[in-house]
Write a protein that binds this DNA or RNA. Sequence first.
DNA 1: GGGTCCCCTTAACTAGTACTTAACCATTTT
DNA 2: AAAATGGTTAAGTACTAGTTAAGGGGACCC
Lengths: 234, 234
Amino acid sequence: MQQVPKVKVLLAEDDLSLGYVIKDNLIDAGYEVILCPDGQSAIDKFDKNDFGICLLDVMMPNKDGFAVARKIRQLSDMVPILFLTARSMEEDKIKGFQSGADDYITKPFSIQELLMRMEVFLRRTRKMHSDKSLSFTIGKLNFSYTDLKLKIDKEVFNLTQKEADLLKFLCEHSNRILKREEVLLNVWGKDDYFLGRSMDVFITKLRKYFKADPEVNLETIHGVGFRFNTPTTG
Amino acid sequence: MQQVPKVKVLLAEDDLSLGYVIKDNLIDAGYEVILCPDGQSAIDKFDKNDFGICLLDVMMPNKDGFAVARKIRQLSDMVPILFLTARSMEEDKIKGFQSGADDYITKPFSIQELLMRMEVFLRRTRKMHSDKSLSFTIGKLNFSYTDLKLKIDKEVFNLTQKEADLLKFLCEHSNRILKREEVLLNVWGKDDYFLGRSMDVFITKLRKYFKADPEVNLETIHGVGFRFNTPTTG
DNA sequence: GGGTCCCCTTAACTAGTACTTAACCATTTT
DNA sequence: AAAATGGTTAAGTACTAGTTAAGGGGACCC
C-alpha cells in the first residue's frame, strides 16, 4: 500500500469514545496511531524520532493539551502539533498558545477536515523530517545523526561531525561491501593516500564504540574496503 | 481568522512555476502575496497597496529587479527589499545595489531560508508578528522577551535587544543542536565570519547569566554550533 | 554641534579541539 | 620472505571558539 513507513500519530484525547473513532479513521487513512487518555501519558509516550504529528485535546485531566505541547516543544521543535478544541474556547486564548507551525481544529469536526489539516502539516514538514532528523538503530546501538549521539544502554558517546558523517554513510550502506574509494569520495569528497590513512584512524575510533555490541562489527575486506555488518532483523 | 493583519508581500518573479511555489508557501506561512510576472507590473501594483516586504527577482523582462527597486525606493524608503538572484551573479554587482535594509538571497534557496530572512527583516521594521508577552521558564531562570529581563531568585539582568533575540531563539530551539549558521541566519539575518565572532561574544555574555543555574548550560558542539541544554522534567 | 552613553562589531590574544600526518607494528598477499 | 595493506597510537597542525578589550556608529542631551 505505502512503501514509505506509516506516519505515526500521537493522539491525546480523554473522551475515549471519541478517541477510538478518530483512531480508527486515522488507521483507515493509513496512519499508525497511539492513543493516550490523558496528558501525562502522552508525554511519556512521546519520542521525537518517532512521531510525525501530534493531535492534542486541549481539555484533559492530568496535564492539559497546552502543557503537553510545551513539553513536546522542548523535546522537538519540528513535530507539528494540532490542538483539538471545544467551540466554547475563545480564539485569543488558543492563539496565545500557538507557536511556530501549530494549528487548531474545533470540535465537532469532520474526519475529512482533520485529515486535510494533517496533510497540510505533513506536506510542510515531510521534507525536513526525512533529512533533518536522521536516526538509526544498529543492534543495541542507537545513533542519532542530528544529535551526533551514539547510545547504548544509557551510555552515550558524543560524536564529532566527521565521525557521524562516516557512521551515517556506513549505516546507509550496511551489510554490503564498500570500497575504500567509495567511502572516501562520499564522506571526504576526495580520495588520496593520506585521507585514506585518516579514514583508518576514524575506523579505529568507530570500532571502539561498537565493542559494546558484538552483533555489530565493521569488517575489513582486505585490499577492497569494508563491510558494516549489522543485524538485519527488524 | 487572524486578528493581526497579514503582512503583504510583493513578489516579482518571471518564472511562474517558481513564482507559484513561493507564493503558496508564503500563504501557508500566513502572508498575503501579490505575484507579478515582470518588473513593470510590480511597479504598477506597488503604489496601490501597502506592502510589508518586496521580493524581487533580479532578472526579469520589462524592467529588472534593480530598476524596480529604484522605483520603489522613490515611493518608500522604509519597505524592505529582498532580491532573488541567480548563483552566477557576481557578489560585487549585487552588493552595489544594496541600500539600507536591502539584502539578497541566491537561487536555489529553501523556503525555510527565505522565510527566515523575511522574518528578520520584518522584525526590524515592525515590532514582531504577534508576540505580546513572550516569556520562558528555563530551570530556575525566568526570561521575559518583551521586558528584556532575565530573572533568577530576585536578581534581575536587563538584557539588550540582541541578547534577548538570541536568547529567545535558543529557548525556542532548546535541547537540539543548532548550527552556527542557523543561529546567525535567524538572529542576525546573515552569516559571515565577523558576525560569527560577534555571536561568540554574545554567547559569552549569556553564559555569564546562566552561571546562576547549573542545570542550564549552553554547550559548544565544536565545528558545528551549540546546544542549549535545559531541564525538561517538571 | 559636540560630548556622552550605550551597544554592537572588530580585533587580538589565548585555549582547546578535531583532523591529518607520521611512525611503528600486525596481518595478509604474492 | 618481501611487499603491500591496514591497525593503532601519538605527534603535529590548522582551525575553532572563549574571552577581554578596543573601535565605531547612532541616539540622546545639553
